[in-house]
Design a binder for these strands. Structure first.
Lengths: 288, 288
DNA sequence: ATCGTGAATTCCGATATCCTGAATTTATCT
DNA sequence: AGATAAATTCAGGATATCGGAATTCACGAT
């Protein structure tokens, strides 16, 4: 059985508290600048603040930003402020296309939104999290754990996220659970026993209902998107008002979701999320 | 009048054949790797091919890719292939509000899509290209020059793209035309005379109709989004089936589009797409 | 199933690049 | 306008980078 560390390595590309964060390589430092820009004020950041946030000298930050600008990843708005530039977003749009899932799922999302008149989410697994890859708004205002596109939640929190976790291979599921329990408790989630019973139920019935919803007045349904080996690679979910998921409508919603999930799975023949990271990372993480 | 080179410098962040492509800085070279990954197969590229495309040795490419992966911008899929990682997408999505324009335009796109039941595009100018910044699908399947979000077309090709070009300042327009003519011809587009007359008409009437559509059965309308100085910073366009843009409906569509474009322009007071690039770039490009 | 080819990764010395500090220019605030 | 603070440029010393060679690894063929 895989260890937590192995699972972690398989998905080490998380911006988590890896504690190796300060480490070297000028490239790494430059890339951190991009992250600083992304997380900073949309109108741009001052060079001084960027340098401080990056922990490097002002001339160094300046030179790197000039390079980033020359390549179209950053730009200088009025007032000398630096911010991300268009090319960055353009490239990022392609990054989401990995395996074409987003593209493949978009028609389904639109159909679901049109049919159900609710907000639809497309989630994918990424390490120990579920990431919102796409989302189509419905007419009702929704609060959800999974915020907007790009939002992350620990696997297990929220219907779609739980649907994914419930359909991972046994050993990975176990590792994720152990890793995520503290994170879930931090967010006021149920205890481990409740999680395990919810997972068992989710796996058995093939979908996750509103019972795990922790936001008052909100409810949702999530179904997994399975690959050829029956492993969850994504989830479709609906978020809506609790009153809109009564006993009458629920079966209908589940059925439609499952139909789309199955059709989507059919389009994903060569979908392979298994990553292998070099053993060098082991020492990096293990040694810190 | 500005020279082509000057215009080019203002928007030098193009992945074109700048001939400065080989130039210095390890950061720039690393960022080019990201571009290579973005343009390559979504399922990933082999290290050898990446190294070749980047014009550097295999070990060098390897080390840079490891750094990119460690920062979450790239990842290794099964089979050792490298591709852009999800974090890249997530980062941009979170910062997405940064662009302002996209955020500001989204309600308009949704309204247009709902009202017209067609696919709506938001294009912005970037150098010699128009870039699709956002897009809302309609119920009809559409083929367009401007592919999905992030797609580029030479300015002048397509309704929205032409609408932007038609409303650039005289000298820039001229420079773009000269630069783009060969590119347009390559793609089976009309000759220079036709382009110029189309531009004149577009500028005069304030919108671009389907007459420039080169895809059989498809049609569209584009209107420019003008800044305070009357320069085009973006375009809204509709793409649909030719039969859905008959003489009855066309004026209606144009009117609605123009209304949204005008409202959008009003929200863009502090929107400043003019970029200033350091004079250092001048010598870089001029000297090669 | 084993072998052979080609790719991916690691190692290491030379060297080009990057970083820190100081000086200059430019912007911002009172 | 003057003063202050930031942004940018400049130069020398230190270091991380680069590419060739060797090794390990993955994959296709016999």
């Amino acid at each position: 059985m895989k260890s937590i560390r192995q699972i972690f390595l398989q998905h080490s590309a998380l911006q988590m508290t890896t504690a190796d964060s300060d480490s070297s390589s000028s490239l790494r430092r430059a890339l951190k600048l991009l992250r600083i820009l992304a997380e900073g004020d949309p109108d741009g950041l001052r060079l001084k603040d960027i340098a401080e946030a990056a922990g490097c000298s002002q001339p160094t930050a300046h030179r790197m930003l000039q390079d980033l600008a020359a390549e179209g990843f950053a730009e200088q708005a009025a007032g000398k402020r630096y911010r991300l530039a268009l090319d960055f977003y353009v490239l990022a749009a392609r990054a989401g296309q990995a395996s074409g899932l987003r593209e493949a799922a978009r028609p389904a999302l639109l159909r679901l939104s049109a049919t159900l008149s609710d907000t639809i989410f497309l989630l994918v697994r990424n390490g120990f999290d579920a990431v919102c890859l796409d989302r189509v708004e419905g007419p009702f205002p929704i609060r959800s754990f999974t915020g907007d596109i790009g939002g992350r939640v620990p696997l297990g929190l929220g219907q779609g996220s739980l649907a994914i976790l419930a359909n991972l291979p046994e050993d990975e599921q176990e590792a994720v659970i152990r890793f995520n329990i503290p994170r879930l408790l931090d967010r006021g989630f149920l205890d481990e026993a409740s999680l395990r019973s919810a997972l068992a139920q989710a796996r058995a019935q093939g979908w996750v209902n509103t019972s795990t919803g922790l936001i008052p007045g909100m409810a949702g349904v999530g179904v997994p998107v399975l690959d050829a080996q029956g492993r969850a690679v994504a989830a479709l979910s609906v978020g809506t008002l609790a009153e809109r998921l009564n006993a009458d409508r629920l079966p209908h919603v589940v059925k439609i979701l499952q139909g789309e999930a199955k059709a989507l799975a059919g389009k994903l023949n060569p979908f392979d999320v298994a990553l292998r990271y070099p053993s060098r990372s082991l020492s990096t993480i293990g040694g810190s």
